[in-house]
Computed example of a mutant assay.
Amino acid sequence: MPRLAANFLSPLALCLLLASCSSIPMPSFLHDPSSEAVVYALGPRDGYTSPLSDSLKPACPALVFEHPDFQLTSAHQQALSRLAQEMAKNKKARLLVAGYTPPNLPPDHARSLSERRALAVRQRLIELGLEAASIQTVGFGNDFSPSGPASNVVVIYTQG
Rank of each mutant, 00 (worst) to 15 (best):
C60D: 12
K89P: 00
N104Y: 14
P2F: 09
A13C: 01
P25L: 07
L14A: 11
S35H: 06
A132R: 12
R82Q: 13
S10N: 05
A98H: 06
S74N: 12
M26G: 01
I24G: 05
N90D: 15
E127F: 00
P149I: 03
R82C: 07
G99T: 03
S134A: 04
E86Q: 10
A19R: 01
V38C: 06
P149N: 06
Q123I: 00
L83M: 03
A88P: 00
D32C: 10
D143Q: 14
D54A: 13
C15L: 13
A6H: 09
P25A: 05
R117K: 11
P27E: 06
P58F: 09
G99H: 08
T49Y: 08
A150R: 15
K57Y: 03
R45Y: 15
R3D: 14
S20A: 10
P2T: 14
P44N: 12
L80I: 06
H31W: 10
S114R: 07
A118I: 02
H109L: 15
L119H: 08
R94C: 12
Y100V: 02
D54T: 15
L56G: 07
R117G: 09
A110K: 03
L9R: 00
A132S: 11
R116V: 00
A37L: 11
H109Q: 15
P149K: 04
L56S: 04
E127C: 11
E66R: 11
S28V: 13
S55I: 14
F140D: 03
A75F: 02
N152I: 02
S145F: 01
K92N: 14
P11W: 10
P107E: 08
V153K: 01
D69I: 01
V38M: 03
L30W: 00
T158C: 15
S55E: 11
L4G: 03
S53I: 10
L16K: 15
T137N: 06
C60A: 15
S145L: 04
E115S: 09
L56C: 04
H109I: 11
L63Y: 01
S50E: 09
C21Y: 14
R82K: 08
Y40R: 06
G43D: 15
G160W: 02
Y157A: 01
A133Q: 12
G99K: 12
P146N: 03
V154K: 02
K57D: 03
A41T: 14
P146D: 09
A120I: 07
R122A: 08
L72S: 01
I126R: 07
S145M: 00
K92C: 14
N152C: 11
V97F: 06
Q136I: 09
V38H: 13
P44D: 15
P25K: 07
K92Y: 07
L30V: 02
F70Q: 00
G160E: 12
M1G: 13
S34D: 03
V38T: 09
K89L: 11
R82N: 14
S10I: 07
A41R: 15
S50V: 10
Q77W: 09
E115Y: 05
Q71K: 13
P61S: 11
S23Q: 09
A84L: 01
C21G: 05
G139F: 02
L16S: 06
I135C: 04
Q136W: 04
P27T: 05
L18R: 11
Q136D: 14
T158R: 13
V97C: 10
G43C: 07
Q123K: 11
Q77G: 06
A150C: 08
A79V: 05
I126T: 07
A59S: 08
